[in-house]
Computed example of a mutant assay.
Amino acid sequence: MLTNTSYTFQENSILGALTAAELDSLAPHLELVTLLHSEVLFEDNDMLQYVYFPVTATVSLLCCLEDGSCVEVAMVGNEGIIGISVVLGNNAKTLTQAITKIEGQAYRISVRELKNILARSGGRRAGTLKKLLLRYAQTLFVQISQATACNRRHALEQQLCTWLLSCFDRGNSSNLSITQELIAYILGVRRESITVIAKKLQEEGMINYSRGQIQLKCREKLEIHACECYSIVKNESDRWVIDAKAA
Rank of each mutant, 00 (worst) to 15 (best):
P28C: 05
T100C: 15
S38A: 15
A98W: 04
E113V: 02
A27G: 14
D24G: 02
F53L: 13
T100N: 11
L32F: 11
V40Y: 03
N90F: 01
A106P: 03
L26C: 08
Y50I: 05
V51T: 08
L36S: 06
S38G: 12
R108Q: 13
L48D: 03
I81N: 02
T139Q: 14
N116Y: 03
Q97T: 13
S85E: 14
C64R: 04
L140I: 10
N91I: 09
K115C: 00
Y107M: 12
I144L: 08
G83S: 01
E31W: 06
V51Q: 08
E103I: 03
Y107S: 11
Q49T: 14
T56S: 00
E66W: 05
T56A: 00
E103M: 07
Y136E: 15
L65M: 09
L129E: 03
N78W: 00
L65H: 06
L88I: 10
E31L: 10
Q49N: 11
R112D: 12
M47S: 11
L134V: 14
T58W: 00
Y50W: 13
G123P: 05
L30P: 07
S110G: 04
L30C: 01
R135H: 14
A119G: 06
L95H: 07
T56P: 02
E79V: 00
F53V: 03
M75G: 12
E31P: 05
V73P: 04
C70D: 14
V71S: 08
L140C: 11
K131L: 15
L41Y: 11
V73Y: 06
L36H: 11
V59M: 11
N91L: 09
L134R: 09
A98L: 02
C70R: 15
Q143S: 00
T100R: 07
T94Q: 01
A126E: 15
T58F: 01
Y107D: 03
I81W: 03
R112A: 09
T58L: 06
P28D: 09
I84E: 12
I82V: 14
K101D: 07
V40S: 13
T56G: 00
H37R: 13
K130F: 06
N90R: 05
K101R: 12
R124Q: 14
R124W: 14
